[in-house]
């Protein structure tokens, strides 16, 4: 699991998952290697940039809280966690997962115990929301007026 697209996908799933669910899945990983911080979790702001009209020039919409950290496991693998919000534990778990996914010995179990179930939970969450939204789909009709 060294492919950039896979790593990007996994990091996205981890970041979008609720912190409680991520912690629950991470608790199933039995052998967690020792690691040191390259960058301890720190919370700051992210300036959110939008585009005028949705597709035009850049403008600053406002900020969001962001927490990030970088760690290195005992075999030298670097894991990165960057998540919206102020949850340092979540950023740490994302970074740890990122590192474990790059190690051949641990990648498979993290995929099956963490990434897979989180992706499934997200899909279900979104599919349920989408069904509720789709129920309010509307077709407006314009009435023919009497003059012709």
């Amino acid at each position: 699991m060294t492919d950039i697209a896979d790593r990007r996908t996994a990091l996205g799933i981890l970041a979008r998952s609720p912190a409680g669910l991520l912690a629950e899945r991470m608790a199933r990983i039995e052998t967690v290697p020792a690691y040191t911080w390259l960058r301890k979790p720190e919370t700051g702001t992210l300036m959110l940039r939008g585009r005028i009209g949705g597709d035009g020039e850049l403008f600053n919409v406002g900020e969001a809280t962001l927490t990030r950290c970088t760690l290195r496991t005992d075999d030298g693998t670097v894991g990165v966690g960057t998540v919206l919000g102020r949850n340092a534990a979540k950023a740490e778990q994302v970074a740890l997962c990122d590192a474990l996914l790059q190690r051949p010995a641990t990648a498979a179990s993290v995929l099956s115990e963490v990434i897979g179930p989180l992706a499934e939970a997200e899909y279900e969450r979104q599919a349920r929301e989408a069904a509720e939204v789709a129920a309010s789909r509307v077709d407006f009709f314009t009435l023919v007026r009497g003059e012709d």
Binding site: M47, L48, R49
Partner: peptide, 29 residues
């Protein structure tokens, strides 16, 4: 907010990728 450091800027928000919860138009039926 003023107590927090600025860590980064986001990539441009892609509102066209929004998972819609609501969407209406009073011009385009």
């Amino acid at each position: 907010r003023t107590t927090l450091p600025r860590l980064s800027e986001s990539q441009p928000l892609a509102t066209g990728r929004m998972r819609l919860a609501r969407r209406i138009s009073a011009a385009f039926k």
